[in-house]
């Protein structure tokens, strides 16, 4: 009897994964608030493939999870510099464009980006900038410089990003460095600058996903923000405005990639192809307000939307922005600066 029970238990254990393999599925690991729910439902309806949807808040969080076990995920959405990192660590599979015909809809300038020159590991999903979202009813002066975030007139009125590269990047730009600067001298200056800002009581909080709702509610005057979140917030509160400061900033692309050893590569490619379909990309665009890299979708937009510089920055703005580059092992030195800032009191 005992043996029978043990046997049944083992059989049960074996059945559970087998059952889930039998059904078609795709494991998607994407940013928080970064897709329209309708799109997932439509994909499931059209293909019969079940989407297991998981979320992350920063690139660094995602990278650690993917490194721990790349086979857990079929489609991931890393940014440019993380794609570079993943390629150099040989963690990304090559995409078969035969299965992603809709990728032809992409804008030309994104077909062979610097972080993935052959374009064989990633398909751009969204792109945007980092800038300042501010409340015009609380800020009367024109905002055009990162320096406004150090103005003590806005004590307890600034949200910074709880994201290592973005926040250090802001301070680097203010001090006249590239956002990819790695010298210890620059890092020390950045550390002092960010601690000065925190000790002066200007920073209200370091956070990421909560900021847009707080800005809509008028919780703070200024916030460092990604352009899409800014456009989303502006659609709910007319007092909000977005600017990419004159010192320059970060322009970024989030791609769709398939980790090496993904269990459902075919489904992953179908999913990526689905998101590249102009009508589907339009549903996403209208929900999350990031700039779409899809020329087919752009063709469907009206004049007013296309003229919105938050969503579609001018060439002049893009010219003063740079991509993040992978800083490899120097991330440890960055992190020391970051911890010093976060724990300063």
């Amino acid at each position: 009897m005992k043996k029978n029970i043990a046997f049944m238990l083992i059989a049960l254990l074996l059945c559970a994964p087998a059952a889930s393999y039998a059904a078609q599925e795709v494991n998607v690991y994407n940013w928080e608030d970064y897709i329209a729910d309708d799109v997932l439902a439509l994909f499931e309806q059209e293909t019969g493939i079940r989407v297991n949807y998981m979320r992350f808040t920063t690139n660094e969080d995602m990278l650690v999870q993917v490194r721990a076990d790349p086979t857990n995920y079929d489609v991931i959405f890393p940014s440019d510099y993380i794609i570079e990192r993943l390629i150099s660590e040989d963690l990304l599979d090559t995409l078969d464009y035969e299965n992603i015909p809709n990728a032809a809809n992409l804008m030309d300038w994104l077909k062979a980006p610097s972080y993935d020159p052959a374009g064989e590991h990633s398909v751009p999903y969204m792109w945007g900038t980092v800038g300042i979202l501010y409340n015009t009813s609380m800020v009367s002066e024109p905002v055009d410089s990162w320096a406004v975030l150090w103005d003590t007139a806005y004590e307890n009125n600034v949200f910074m990003m709880d994201s290592i590269r973005d926040t250090i990047g802001v301070a680097m730009k203010l001090l006249g460095y590239s956002i990819n600067e790695r010298s210890q001298e620059a890092l020390d200056l950045v550390k002092d600058k960010l601690i000065e800002q925190k000790r002066a009581g200007i920073v209200k909080a370091y956070q990421v996903d909560e900021t847009k709702d707080k800005m809509i509610a008028g919780e703070a005057a200024l916030a460092v923000m990604w352009s899409g979140d800014a456009a989303y917030a502006m659609s709910y509160n007319e007092d909000l405005a977005y600017v990419v400061p004159k010192e320059g900033s970060n322009v970024w692309v989030d791609g769709m990639c398939i980790p090496k050893g993904a269990r459902n590569k075919e489904n992953a490619e179908r999913f990526i192809d689905f998101l590249c379909r102009p009508d589907i990309a339009l549903i996403n665009f209208e929900e999350i307000w990031y700039s779409t890299p899809n020329a087919g979708t752009v063709a469907m937009l009206d004049e007013e939307t296309l003229a919105d510089e938050t969503i579609f920055p001018t060439d002049e703005t893009i010219a003063r922005c740079e991509f993040f580059k992978d800083i490899a092992a120097d991330i440890q030195r960055y992190n020391r600066v970051w911890l010093a800032v976060k724990s300063a009191r």
Partner: peptide, 22 residues
Amino acid sequence: LGGGSFMMFGDLIENQFLTTGD
């Protein structure tokens, strides 16, 4: 409640595992 401005030991451990992967 502290808006990421008050780092505690638990945050530090989490940072090592989730952000730097050390």
